[in-house]
């Protein structure tokens, strides 16, 4: 699939000339050295690559968790590389849904309260919050577990609660960093089904980092990262492996 045919409204993500260098003591570690990336609105992009190649670094930049040393990152039309920490935080709350390898649910809160967490940062009424939480739990198929605490849920169910939490503010872009990294094959399949459905039925744009080629294949396109460079084929990775 080409990157322009998914939706007509222009790209969801447009990164140009992105440089990200970390300092480790005195030495500078260049991770991304002038990288370009375009994700069309409505796309489900899988990102693969060896450990340490910079996948999470790129995902964090796209999600506004980090800022590039050089280059531009425009997401949904917003030049987020120019936003202050404070504005970035507010921007993330409204525009990005996060799914990580571990759902990091707050242990003391029930599933529904965990899902409601991002709503604390909004001014929705109590009724609207309830409605949104109910819908998000419905989408991930956990309406009947709303009152359960994380430790009463399986790993896959916890991850679903995490996805419901990512959906509750209705963001256009979901970033998923190894969302199935901690799950068995069957459960992984269910989570990937859920993500694919969100992409297909809710029109969510998804950027997913994964090590699993089968998982990657669920996306509409796969990019490979090696030494801070992106390519459309797996050749580069094959050489390393």
């Amino acid at each position: 699939m080409s990157e322009t045919d998914s939706a007509g409204n222009g790209p969801m993500v447009e990164a140009r000339g992105v440089v990200r260098t970390f300092r480790r003591g005195r030495t500078a570690v260049p991770v991304l050295r002038g990288l370009d990336l375009r994700i069309a609105d409505g796309e489900f992009l899988s990102l693969m690559g060896p450990s340490g190649s910079g996948k999470s670094t790129l995902l964090n930049l796209v999600a506004g968790l980090d800022r590039p040393n050089e280059g531009e990152v425009v997401v949904g039309g917003a030049p987020i590389h120019r936003l202050s920490e404070r504005r970035l935080a507010a921007w993330r709350a409204r525009n990005i849904g996060f799914v990580f390898q571990f759902s990091n649910l707050l242990a003391g809160l029930t599933a529904e309260k965990n899902v409601a967490l991002p709503l604390l940062l909004t001014s929705f009424s109590g009724a609207e919050r309830k409605r949104r939480v109910a819908i998000a739990l419905e989408i991930v198929g956990l309406s009947d577990r709303a009152r359960h605490r994380p430790r009463e849920l399986s790993g896959g169910e916890q991850q679903r609660v995490g996805i419901a939490r990512a959906l509750v503010n209705d963001p256009a872009l979901l970033v998923c960093d190894e969302p199935t990294g901690d799950l068995d094959r069957k459960t992984s399949g269910e989570i990937l089904d859920l993500l694919a459905a969100l992409n297909r039925e809710q029109g969510k744009t998804i950027l997913m980092v994964t090590h699993d080629p089968e998982a990657a294949a669920r996306g509409s396109r796969t990019l490979h990262m090696l030494d801070g460079q992106l390519s459309a084929t797996a050749e580069a990775e094959a050489v390393v492996a």
Partner: peptide, 14 residues
Amino acid sequence: VGEIGLMKAIGFTG
């Protein structure tokens, strides 16, 4: 650490 990291990711300021 993980929970707090997540809260910050989803938009809670420092």
